[in-house]
């Protein structure tokens, strides 16, 4: 690896980390309009259950296109959903970034640890994230985000927030 590509890789890692941390912060603050703005219209937000890449033909926890994402956010925001009025509070960290693909669309894997609090009860969740990011004039935009929970095929609880 020459000096220039080392610098490129370091810069990309820095840019990607910054973007994912920004997204994590947005999600913990539940600033969902800002979150929607991070997406490409044809993007998918997927929480799979099984170990598969064929999300269309498999049952997922969610597999949201643009309309479902917007409906989901509207449900959170309008105040008629008892589970999200109020929702659980969350604090998360995203780390262990691995860039799988640097040319064209950037594919980055990361680990997410999230703690939720509701009714004075805290629950811990962990997920492997895979973001497919597109470079635009406004910075990165998300084409696909896959959040694979550690126990995705097992017994979970219901969620009033996003991973």
């Amino acid at each position: 690896m020459n000096e220039l590509s080392k610098i490129d890789t370091a810069t990309l890692l820095q840019d990607v980390s910054q973007f994912l941390w920004q997204e994590a912060d947005i999600l913990d603050r539940k600033d969902y309009d800002a979150w929607l703005a991070l997406w490409l219209t044809d993007g998918f937000y997927t929480l799979p259950i099984d170990d598969t890449q064929d999300f269309d033909n498999t049952l997922n926890l969610c597999h949201d296109n643009d309309k479902m994402r917007r409906d989901r956010i509207e449900r959170f925001q309008r105040g008629f959903s008892i589970s999200s009025a109020p929702p659980a509070d969350t604090i998360r960290t995203v780390s262990r970034f691995v860039i799988d693909k640097a040319e064209g669309d950037v594919v980055v894997r990361s680990a997410e640890h999230l703690i939720e609090n509701k009714f004075g009860r805290q629950r811990v969740w962990a997920a492997n994230l895979t973001h497919t990011l597109v470079r635009t004039d406004q910075g990165f935009r998300i084409r696909h985000k896959v959040a694979r929970l550690l126990n995705s095929a097992g017994m979970l609880n219901s969620f009033s927030y996003l991973f």
């Binding site: 929480l47 989901r72 219901s158 969620f159």
Partner: peptide
């Protein structure tokens, strides 16, 4: 867990 009905 992520449905529009079950969590409520």
């Amino acid at each position: 867990p992520m449905g529009f009905g079950s969590p409520d």
